[in-house]
Design a protein around this nucleic acid. Structure first.
Lengths: 216, 216
DNA sequence: TAGGGGATCCCGTTTTTACGGGATGGGGTG
DNA sequence: CACCCCATCCCGTAAAAACGGGATCCCCTA
């Protein structure tokens, strides 16, 4: 019943030679991972990698000489669409992490993680998972929760919400009046009430505030 | 050099008695985890738990009789602000996962995870981490990337971005001119260029589009 | 060196907003 | 049954925005 374990091809991009060699050894020690390709920069990887290489996972450092790892992610994915990218770095600062993940990284581990954690992470990535260092995971959840904060209960009426939504689409009051089947004056009044509730004095402020408060 | 390992108090909320007992045994087998409290529903937990209990981690199932686990998370956090909640369930559907995390869960594991993974997850949560089952992590990253899609490369100049940012704050063109130390006409020109780039014809549309494109 | 883009400035007209100050009818509530 | 809120409608004015159609200067690049 055990399915045949397919051997995964790993590629390393890491400028610290000692660490790179240690990783390579550990990977090749594994019975189902193999690493023939390792580079000290993204440029070296993109220039020298054979076209017929079928790489399953790229282990990518971020602080590299030349092109920065985050910048490299889209380019690597473009050239190797089937390949998963697993970031392995010392950087744990939020902007970097979010940029790397937004750029398409499939996982994010830190060099402080145990080598076994890293090997398991490679397996997870290859199997469609998303290994995250626990501090990184916490950071993401925090960001995630910050995106959906407890709403300060500004309750617009249904008409006001509708009006605001159409304004955000770029319609002018006259067009909104037509769309809602009411007069210009009605829309104008709705907008005045919106201003009062949101404490703003013009459309751009109202739209911005409404979006940020998740009202529309 | 090894710091003294503090024993973590775990509380289980899980309606399947067999599974609950097995978990409890595994936890109490560990040398640094202990579990004196286990309940088959959220109501039982809230009603019976002593006020002086210092619980480090609540292992929470979601599909419970009575109050659903997701609903329970805010209430549990309110009553036990110091306690971390680690979801342990069979549900891996996106809406449930996102709701649970948005509600304040510190981690999300599946019952299909190995018991050692779960025990390690408890440690991680107690230490401020955020253990996520790899499929769950992938789901979150996917959602995350969906929120920040490949940007259609609209590049505003620095001045245009500044202008847009101030407009979103509700300033009028004249005020922006003063703030930037330029004339009204300059701001007006910037705004015209913004309209052309964003393909809109008024401030509200521009502000809305800019926010949605993550330009400001 | 010619050309392009960015930032800056200006004039004038039409359209749209912003807001003060009204009004009416309907639905819900103390 | 008053009272309030919502949705609707109206007038008028001052302010702001939208836009056509210009211009100058500077920096960078083909």
């Amino acid at each position: 019943m055990t399915p045949p374990i397919s051997v995964r091809n790993i590629c390393l991009i890491e400028d610290h030679q000692d660490y790179r060699n240690a990783l390579k050894l550990a990977i090749n020690d594994s019975d189902h991972l193999t690493c023939h390709l390792d580079f000290s920069s993204v440029e070296a990887c993109l220039d020298n990698i054979p076209d017929n290489s079928s790489i399953d996972v790229i282990l990518l450092d971020l602080g590299l000489p030349g092109m920065h790892g985050v910048t490299a992610i889209p380019q690597l994915l473009k050239q190797f669409p089937q390949t998963k990218i697993l970031v392995l770095t010392v950087y744990d600062h939020k902007p970097v992490v979010l940029q790397a993940l937004a750029a398409g990284a499939s996982g994010y581990l830190l060099k402080s993680d145990h080598i076994l954690t890293i090997l398991r992470g490679i397996d997870e990535v290859a199997n469609g998972g998303a290994p995250l260092n626990s501090h990184i995971a916490r950071m993401i959840l925090t960001t995630f929760n910050a995106v959906r904060p407890a709403k300060p209960e500004i309750d617009l009426t249904e008409r006001e919400r509708e009006t605001l939504g159409l304004l955000a689409k770029g319609l002018i009051k006259k067009e909104i009046a037509d769309q809602l089947g009411v007069s210009y004056h009605t829309v104008d009044t709705h907008v005045r009430n919106i201003y009062a509730k949101l404490q703003v004095h013009n459309l751009s402020g109202a739209v911005a505030k409404a979006i940020h408060l998740d009202l529309i």
